[in-house]
Write a protein that binds this DNA or RNA. Sequence first.
RNA 1: GGUCCCUUCGUCUAACGGUUAGGACAUCAGGUUUUCAUCCUGAAAACAGGGGUUCGAUUCCCCUAGGGACUACCA
Length: 478
Amino acid sequence: MSTQIKTRFAPSPTGDLHIGGLRTALFAYLFAKKNQGQFFLRVEDTDQTRYKEGSLNSILEGLKWAGLHYDGDLVYQSKRTAIYQKYAAELVKAGHAYHCFCTADDLATMRQEQTADGNTVTRYDRRCLNLTPEEVKAKLDAGTPHVIRLKVPSGETEFTDLIRGKVKINNADVDDQILLKSDGFPTYHLANVIDDHDMGISHVIRAEEWLPSTPKHIILYQMFDWDIPEFAHLSMVLAPDRSKLSKRHGATSVLEFKNLGYLPEAVVNYIALLGWNPGTEQEVFSLSELEKEFDLAKVNKSGAIFDIEKLNWLNGHYIRQKTIQELAELCLPYLQADENIKIQEYKNNYIELVVGLEQERLKKLSEIGERTKYFFARPTVDPQMMVWKKSTPEETQERLKFLLEFLATVPEENWTRNTLQDIVIEEIGRRGYGNGDTLWPMRVALSGEEKSPSPFEIAEVLGKSETIERLKMIIEKA
RNA sequence: GGUCCCUUCGUCUAACGGUUAGGACAUCAGGUUUUCAUCCUGAAAACAGGGGUUCGAUUCCCCUAGGGACUACCA
């Protein structure tokens, strides 16, 4: 019998979709796709107090942006409370769980007493397990606030994690976990097991933080007499100092990366490589290639540091793969957002030419405005900067005058980067000038920048009249 | 503190007991070039430490050290 592979991503709506969360989702998604399975999305919103407005939207948008489409309908745990309560009652009836009437204060003093003698292990002492059925009934009838706790059996729990191998935990180290809170909502542990079972999840792929509580889940599966899914616990994504990746290390939210001008291809490719190794020397993978190549067995056990440099490299790579039209479209929002650029005054065709000049330089789309501003407004040019390192101000003036005169004679039909380059360099040679002492000033005069595309590329995009005009202004000013 | 997990260049990683320990990013040096970038070539850079097992350990076992997760009526 072969069962279909089903995985899920189960975030709680308590904040933006984090880069680590996206990686968890990606691996669950890839594993499903690789095995012709299904990938589901479930919202773990059982804690109303931690709900954060907008976070669900961030999660959905982030996944969509990355191209991780989920199958079926979105499952909300908050809409399934009655189901959890039913199952919890079943467990109580079967003697696998029990009512606990301890208050937060009770638990606090209990823990205090437990640690008073230097012992540092706190565990629920099962005092409510000693209540007689009559006492329990009386308290329930009186409406005493209560929770339902898992009665962890003795023995040990062993399972084989698909990434880490055999993990064995002594049940004595497992606390009698609260399954149903006094507000009637389930805790993660109960809801998670019930939902994974109901959804037919075959492989639970989740973050490392769940590894220690997996025995609780396995115990629950056993108590319900349900098939136990496979587990795979992913290591964490770390900051450069090996601490938990957080705000102070820069962008962490997926949509933040989007806004910074990272392409989804690059982010997906990069985080796939964080912990997973393809087994070949290939580094660049599209999502569909990943869907074919992904292998859980080749996921690393140790935490991986998030290295923005390699992401930048991949992002630059993917930017260079785009057609000019695609890139211009991607850059447009950044140009529109730039208050110094009145982008609506320019034609698409011009924007494409401008963007095209930066294609091989761009690491992030967000750099486009700063890099191309001189195409949208005449630059202020530092006369010092115009002087080539092996040249002089006088020579520079002379070269600029030459360029002005010479370029004015170039017919419009020859005004292309290649032709301009050919004829200008030829003329430079004929006159015994140097390329550097002529072309450097030309480039700086047109761009105002120390670094930029070549003067011929700039001249072509600017057009003949604007090029001539800029040169003229520079010369007159000197 | 307890339980569990982890440990190869700065970073991500390869190596199914025998390799000059490989690749990529970053770094550095060259080449191309008017600058930057792209591209090409090259260099430097790692088996956490200690015990075993073995003819032989990066690889298997144990210990130590270091890092991490968990230890909530949060997920």
